[in-house]
Design a protein around this nucleic acid. Structure first.
Lengths: 204, 204, 204, 204
DNA sequence: GATGAATGAGAGTTCATTCAT
DNA sequence: TATGAATGAACTCTCATTCAT
């Protein structure tokens, strides 16, 4: 009544999503109940259905919103390098993508935990969204690696596709431990470390 | 009549497990029904319970057997390097671990697809088994990297733990694409490629 | 709207219990289905589980509530004779116990029918409750008979334990017929009759 | 092969019935499985169905055979007094009925335990058999009490029907404790005690 | 006769979703 | 808008019964 009704409505949506994230992260999607989500959100069960059509939609919103944000973070990181075609710029863009991921995860610690085991059992609709996002990102990385190869910055021993997966695999796996660390290093540091490992390897 | 009855009983178990793998891989554990597993196996629902105590046990058998096999493959790969403490031996053992993973996945294509999204929502009992296996493996890799560092074979720019995760992340991610490839390269080739990438990086 | 919501919730509980009593009395516990109970109560099956955790709990409530009531009726009947240790007072207390049983059964005609065949197959948990109640009651009767013996009011030809069982056996068996009688005599009359039969025998 | 096949067949039937009695006595009818009965009998499950049509038939045989035996025991006890119409003879017959029950129970200790909680939930068919037997017996007792009344041996303070139930209630209840006693008194003693209690009461 | 693997109807229970208030 | 009691479809698991060997 006092506050704007629109803001209130958005608040309630956000409140529910937040609760859903917490609950799903803890127990997994299928094991969680709408009852529990409502309880954690401090509202009645029926109210959930005023803001979302189904339990699945909760999941959809949870995931696709984040994917969108990650995608746009990556977008920003690579946008500036679109025009310049120097090898350095491409490498910088790649480094930017890596950093964008760590930056994203650092603000979404819980989401990562949550996502860790959910992909692949989200139902075709949703996993498609996630996989599309992931594949899109990987494909973009692949393209950039090809450019880097063309410019002699990356060797051709391995095909770009495999390299792209390798890089993304490193990023995800390291991000996971990094988040578990009670005193994690800075986004800049960890990103640089991983990217350097990717570029130069670990050999002494 | 001709075939041995023992084999027949084992066959039935195997038949059900195979069906379960197919069904779980397609729909995920929670979304799959025992009815569906039975249908795919071509038997009656009750028969499943003659061979397994519960739906969960199906999952257990499916997973823990594989984990055990992967672990033993890794065991073999690293066994010979236990005594020799030369830097080369440690690196060879690491390469062996990488190769063991690809060898394992190459025989378990479907299992990988299946596992991809299941971890983390298997219920505490099972995910513990999987995570224990994974963590054990990662810990072993970490130890080996520390040895390699001590012997001057690996640089100290990054801590061993992060490196271990990075390597395993690369392996899993690359394995996934590799399996999707209709004409995948040999286990030897892909293992070498990944390990080399890890050691030497991708810089031209 | 008019009636209080609390009362409504209690009503539903009572409604279900009533239905369960009817159904269990007719078919026995194990042969009855929750579906049938719900149908008789005129509600959906799931609703039963909003008010009771399980089918067994239905039984628990049905039985233990009554046992408690019977016990408290007996309590009242014997309470006043606690201080006085005259033989007459003990006999009066015994008569009171007998009367308490008939009074109880007269308001629980259906429950008796229902209980008739259920004891002994209620599952350990519940039958324990019932048997405890029964044994407690019988033990109390035994003690009182011993007191009565000590005071010379009851002869020692038979041990008190056997007597106690005999009395309770008479009470239960007579109560059963009494309830089946379309025009039963009053609680006072039947109690007096049975107690007198116990004390004085049937010999002319 | 060696022994007569008929005897062997009867033996197997008896073996199964014995096992069923043990199992049903321990767990109750509905909670027991045919599997368990077969296991206790030391035969295969299917074999049970060669000798009995169904699990229910097991129960039928178990109960109706005993009821028949009890009835015939009572028959014997009362047969001789059919002609003589003296009061003493009637009382002796009543005493005989009481004794017949204790004699029966003394050889069927397990059966009593078993029956204790089963009546009333045997399904209409079976409980009818049991109740018919019981009612028949009670009716016979009632008739004899009427005769005894007519002959001035029993007082008319209570109607014969109630008396009959009282007597039978005493018998059943006392029999139950009596059987539980590790060193039970003789059949003759306990029968006499109960009958005397019924006739003369417990008053000093 | 004897076996025991196989069957499948049916039970108890859960929970996403609806709707009267 | 918000509620939460009510619903009923769907699931896992049991077990009496059958039948090929």
């Amino acid at each position: 009544m006092a506050s704007s009704p629109v803001a209130s409505s958005d608040d309630k949506r956000a409140l529910i999503l937040e609760a859903a994230l917490r609950v799903f992260a803890e127990s997994g999607f299928h094991t969680s109940t709408v009852d529990k989500v409502a309880e954690v959100a401090g509202i009645a069960k029926g109210t959930v259905y005023l803001y979302f059509h189904s339990k699945n939609e909760l999941m959809d919103e949870l995931v696709s919103g984040r994917i969108a944000r990650l995608t746009s973070l990556v977008e920003e990181a690579t946008a500036q390098s679109v025009d310049e075609l120097t090898g350095e710029a491409v490498l910088a863009a790649l480094a930017g993508i890596v950093k964008a991921h760590f930056a994203f995860y650092s603000t979404e610690r819980q989401f990562l935990t949550f996502l860790a085991g959910q992909i692949g059992m989200l139902g075709p609709n949703l996993s498609t969204a996630v996989l599309d996002g992931t594949q899109l990102l990987t494909a973009r990385v692949e393209t950039m690696l090809e450019q880097a190869m063309a410019m002699g910055k990356v060797r051709r021993a391995t095909d770009a596709r495999t390299m792209a997966f390798a890089l993304m695999g490193m990023v995800h796996a390291v991000a996971y431990t990094w988040l578990m660390d009670p005193e994690p290093s800075s986004v800049d540091d960890i990103s640089a470390e991983v990217f350097d490992m990717f570029m130069a390897g670990v050999r002494a």
